[in-house]
């Protein structure tokens, strides 16, 4: 701990804040994705103005189910006929009181895991898709913290 004037606590705090923020963001990222406001864009916005709560719940579930006859878009976005019917199935099941999990389980029992647009976060899925990138990011942030400190503390090269 040298008394170098240029090493102030503020930058270190800034890095810790960045770390903490990253943790917070990742953790709450799940909340954002599960909210009933997920639309076809990278930044979910406010809930779509819908004519009923049932519509809103249908939409929020429909964006998580893959259109079986399209290329990777959800049954909410797809203009195809089958997707429309699948949306109706979702709406009927919601109206009958089924939970989101039960409806997803129904479709998985018919189509396989493939019908879910986001793999179930358990087992290998969880490890590879979620834990691995999170670790890389957090590790990288920590690494930068260490590197910057080391590179700032290094004495000036004599020849320079």
């Amino acid at each position: 701990m040298s008394a170098a004037r240029h090493r102030r606590p503020v930058p270190a705090v800034a890095i810790h804040i960045a770390l903490g923020a990253a943790l917070l963001f990742f953790a709450s990222g799940s909340a954002a994705a599960q909210g009933d406001s997920l639309r076809t864009s990278p930044v979910p916005g406010t809930p779509v103005i819908s004519d009923s709560a049932l519509e809103a719940r249908t939409r929020s579930l429909a964006v998580q189910l893959r259109c079986a006859v399209c290329q990777g878009i959800s049954i909410q976005e797809s203009p195809s006929g089958l997707a429309g019917e699948m949306r109706e199935v979702v709406k009927e099941m919601l109206r009958a009181g089924k939970t989101e999990e039960e409806i997803k389980a129904y479709f998985v029992s018919k189509y396989g895991e493939w019908i879910l647009l986001e793999p179930k976060p358990r087992g290998f899925n969880l490890l590879f898709l979620y834990v691995f990138p999170t670790l890389v990011l957090l590790g990288g942030l920590a690494g930068i913290g260490v590197l910057v400190r080391r590179w700032s503390a290094a004495p000036a090269p004599p020849a320079a």
Binding site: A68, G81, L82, E85, K110, Y111
Partner: peptide
């Protein structure tokens, strides 16, 4: 009608 059976059978084409 309304493809309910198709969905029940997991049809994708």
């Amino acid at each position: 009608p309304r493809s309910r059976t198709a969905i029940d059978y997991g049809l994708y084409g």
